[in-house]
Structures are given as C-alpha cells and as structure tokens.
Amino acid sequence: MDRRTFLKIFGSGVAGATTGNLLSPGRSFAKGDLSGQEFNGILVDTTRCIGCRRCEKACAEVNGLPIPDISESKNEDVLKEPRNTSDTQYTVITKYETEKGTIFVPKRCMHCNQPGCAAACLVKAMKKRPTGHVTWDSNCIGCRLCMISCPFDIPKFEYNKAMPRIQKCNLCYERFKKGELPGCVEACPTGALMSGSRRQILEEGKRRISDNPDKYVDHIYGEYEVGGTSHLYLSAVPFEQIGFRKDLGTVAYPEYSTGFLFAVPFIFVLWPLAMLGINRATKKSKEDEGHHEEHHNEKGKH
C-alpha cells in the first residue's frame, strides 16, 4: 500500500469515526454537510396540486404498499374525510376548503434537519442520513418513542402485526442512491412537487414567492419550523388553514432533551463524590464506634 492510499483510508477512517456513531452529537446535523453532501428535499407547491393522488399511487408502488384506487369518483369520496398518513400510506393528499377555494395538500414526513424521531431512537434505527433522508432500519425495538417525539406525528406503527415495523416516508432513499427521483415527484403531472438539494428548493420557493407576491403567502413552511425541514411547503393561504401547526416553534426538537442529557455526566461525577463524602462525614468517630457496634449486635439478636 503506498502512502497515498494509506492516508486516504486512514483519513476516511478518522472521518468515519468522528462523524459516525459515537462522537457526533446531534447538533452536528445543523451543519448539514459534514461529508460534503447537502440535504435533499422536496418543495411542495400547494397552489399547483390538483388532488389527483398519483403521488399516493406511485409511493405505494415504490414502497410495496397496498395500491390505492385513484379513479376520479373514488378520489372524491376519499378526499371528503380528513386524512392522515398511516402504516400503509407514506403520503396522503388532504383537501381543505379555504378562503381561496379548495386546496390539496400532500402530507408526509418532513425530513427535519434535526429530527426528533432520530434523536429519540435508542438504537439509531431512525437515522438522519448525511443526504437529508430520514430512514428507518430493522434493528428497531419498537418502543414507539419516535412517534411521540415527532412534531408532525409522522411515524406510524403496524399494531396489527406480530412482527411490526415503523412505517414512514424515507424520501426514496434507495432510489436516490441509484440517482432516481422520488416516486411521488416522478409521478406528479403538475410539477407541484420538485426535488433537489435543500438550498436549491429553498431558493426556488423564494423565487416563486417574490415573482408572484399576490399568489403566495410570504412564508415557506419548513424553512425555520422545528429548526428547518428538508421538505418545504408553499401556500396561497395562511398555513394554519391547510392543517399546519403554527405553534411548533423554530427550535430543533432534539434541543429539548439536551438540557437533561447534557446534565447526566455531571451527575455521574458529582453524586458519587457527594454521597461518599456524606457517608464518611456521618461515620462515628473511634470512641463512639464501640458503642455503635454494641448497639448493633443487640439489634441483630432479636
């Protein structure tokens, strides 16, 4: 092995160790591109969505889920109800009646920049990939804390299976590795979905807003929400009218658990010393000790 290769391997090993499992705190996600990669995501322009549900069908095909019937008559029926992703649907279209008429909104995992789900997972089954994809793996133990920790209520659990999985959109991670577009983006006939690096789609979103200030509200949902998400939304009406929560704040969700987690090492150092100290301080001095033993023996006898 010549020196060059050695350095390369060694270098990547070190980089792997520092960016990999043990040493990288959740915070490094914020920097986003430790590996020189950018987060990828999808820009959803709700003004362009016509509610055809072709993304739902494409998603089901790509991920081996039950294929939905998306004929027009069926759509009308299905869209009457308020909808949510489920353990058999990674993405759903929801219909909202708003001040600007009917609006269709595709819902799915937001692929948060710093996901609560991944920070909650004790086996790193939920993982934020350096490419921005939040994926689930089968080493999961099924504790369902990711469901509790997701601000958007996205991960779904297969309650009715003996060997259940957590089900959610993974931004077509496998297809991405092959250089293909996400299934839904490929299927969308109107360009309501646009995939790209987060930087690109954010720029595109801002451009659309500034080009048509009357058409859009001046806000990209996901730019700052919960510390930023890789899935971004444009809307013609205020976001609370199309089912988005406005009370989630801009703090990345994992930050809420850092107060506790960062205190742990301090307690591990301070508590034992404090207790050993008290234990020593309450020890009876030599003269008392004889008395103490006596007393003790007596107690032991009965």
Binding site: L122, C140, R144, L145, Y159, P164
Partner: peptide
C-alpha cells in the same frame, strides 16, 4: 415494545443510540 426480539440491541451496540434519553 413492538419488536421485543430486538430488545438487547441497545446493549450489544446494534446500535448505541447515545443521543437518546431512552
């Protein structure tokens, strides 16, 4: 826990999710 046969995973390092309170 839904996938109880995996319960030892956090113990054997498959994977150590040190970022997690759990």
């Amino acid at each position: 826990i839904g996938r109880w046969w995996n319960i030892y995973n956090p113990m054997i390092g498959n994977d150590f999710g040190v970022n997690a309170v759990m």
